[in-house]
Simulated assay, not measured.
Amino acid sequence: MSIYDQRDPRFRSLIHPNAQLRQIGSGFEWAEGPVWFPAAQMLLFSDIPAHRMMRWTAETGCTVFREDSDYSNGNTRDPSGRLVTCHHGLRAVTRTEHDGRRTVLASHHAGKRLNSPNDVIARSDGSVWFTDPTYGILSDLEGYRASPEQDGSFVYRISPEGGDPVAVVTDFTQPNGLCFSPDERLLYVAESGSSHNPDVPPVIRVFDVSEDGTVGNGRDFAMIDKGLPDGIRCDARGNLWSSAADGVHVFAPDGALLGKVLVPEVVSNICFGGPRGNRLFITATTSLYVVAVDATAAGWPA
Rank of each mutant, 00 (worst) to 15 (best):
D8R: 02
P9Q: 14
P17C: 06
Q20L: 12
Q20W: 01
S26I: 00
E32A: 03
G33S: 08
G33C: 10
V35K: 00
W36F: 04
P38F: 03
A39N: 13
S46M: 05
D47N: 04
H51C: 13
M53F: 00
M53T: 09
M53D: 14
R55V: 04
W56F: 10
E67S: 15
D68W: 07
D68Y: 11
S69K: 09
P79K: 02
G81Y: 10
V84N: 00
T85A: 12
T85R: 00
V93H: 02
T94Q: 05
R101E: 15
T103W: 01
V104R: 12
A110Q: 15
G111A: 09
D125A: 01
F130M: 07
D132Y: 04
Y135I: 04
L141W: 03
L141N: 14
L141M: 14
G143L: 03
A146L: 00
Q150D: 02
Y156I: 04
R157M: 12
I158N: 04
I158E: 00
S159R: 13
V166R: 15
V168L: 12
T173R: 10
G177L: 08
L178W: 11
L178G: 09
C179H: 09
F180T: 11
S181P: 03
L186I: 13
L187A: 11
G193A: 08
G193I: 11
V200E: 11
P201I: 07
V203W: 11
R205G: 00
D208L: 07
S210T: 15
D212L: 03
T214G: 05
T214A: 10
T214L: 10
G216P: 11
G216E: 09
F221I: 11
I224Y: 04
I224T: 08
D225A: 12
P229R: 09
D230Y: 06
I232Q: 12
G238R: 01
N239L: 02
W241M: 08
S242N: 10
S242K: 10
D246S: 12
D246A: 07
F251I: 07
A252I: 09
A256M: 11
L257K: 12
L262E: 14
L262M: 15
E265N: 14
E265S: 13
I270Y: 00
C271Y: 08
G274R: 06
L280I: 05
F281V: 03
I282H: 09
A284M: 06
S287L: 01
Y289N: 11
V290S: 14
T296L: 05
A297P: 03
A297N: 01
A298I: 07
G299H: 13
